[in-house]
């Protein structure tokens, strides 16, 4: 028997946590519990990102997703958490249809994932000797439009591998628009009188 490969153990732990809490989000009827399970599921996902060697994206997931987006979500939950909305039961018919459709989709996706032999996982010896390369700087350079990971590639292969400066700018402007739009939508209402008062 081979020695245990520890990253696999951590993959199993984080993967089980992510899947389990995602299921808990689905099955729970209490909206606040759902938010809590979602936090744990997404945090476990960031653990999977770290495990895949993508430290920057993992930290980003923790900072923006878990720390920002979900706090916002819980904020919304608390603003609307009246007694009758905290537990909203799903109709039994919805459950049955959802389970059938979801189960079919899940079996399809899983079968598809394992049907390609190149995706089943590398040889252990090949992975264990890989050097640990930080990827924060290449990501930053990529966002600035320079692909430091592709410098060695031949010119004809490099043609489609552009940097991400333009999408980065679009996303920045998009965020600004969203910021203003959300503030406008959620602003405090001034209840104007519908009828003109002389």
């Amino acid at each position: 028997m081979d020695a245990i490969y520890w990253p696999s153990v951590f993959f199993l732990i984080f993967g089980a946590l992510a899947c389990g809490f995602a299921l808990a989000v689905l099955l729970s009827a209490n909206i606040v519990r759902m938010a809590f399970y979602l936090v744990l599921s997404l945090a476990a996902t960031s653990g999977l990102f770290f495990l895949a060697g993508q430290e920057f994206v993992g930290a980003m997931q923790l900072l923006i997703y878990v720390g920002g987006t979900l706090v916002l979500l819980i904020f919304g939950v608390m603003l609307t958490s009246q007694e009758r909305f905290v537990n909203m039961k799903t109709l039994a018919g919805d459950w049955v249809i959802g389970m059938i459709a979801g189960g079919a989709l899940l079996s399809l996706l899983t079968a598809a994932a394992f049907s390609v032999p190149e995706w089943r996982g590398p040889e252990r010896a090949a992975v264990e000797n890989l050097p640990i390369e930080p990827n924060a700087t290449p990501i930053g350079m990529g966002l600035l439009g320079a692909r430091v990971d592709q410098i060695g590639a031949p010119a004809d292969e490099r043609a489609g591998m552009a940097g991400y400066l333009f999408p980065f700018e679009i996303v920045s402007v998009h965020l600004l628009v969203v910021l203003i739009g959300a503030a406008y939508l959620a602003r405090a209402k001034r209840r104007s009188n519908p009828l003109p008062t002389g």
């Binding site: 430290e55 930290a59 923790l62 900072l63 878990v66 920002g68 608390m78 924060a136």
Partner: peptide, 26 residues
């Protein structure tokens, strides 16, 4: 030893608020 240490610490510090929010709600 994390390559993105500063980012990680700032990110994790923001998670403490969850306990507070859950405490306040529950």
């Amino acid at each position: 030893h994390l390559n993105t240490g500063v980012f990680f610490v700032v990110a994790v510090l923001g998670l403490e608020v969850f306990g507070v929010i859950l405490a306040g709600y529950s």
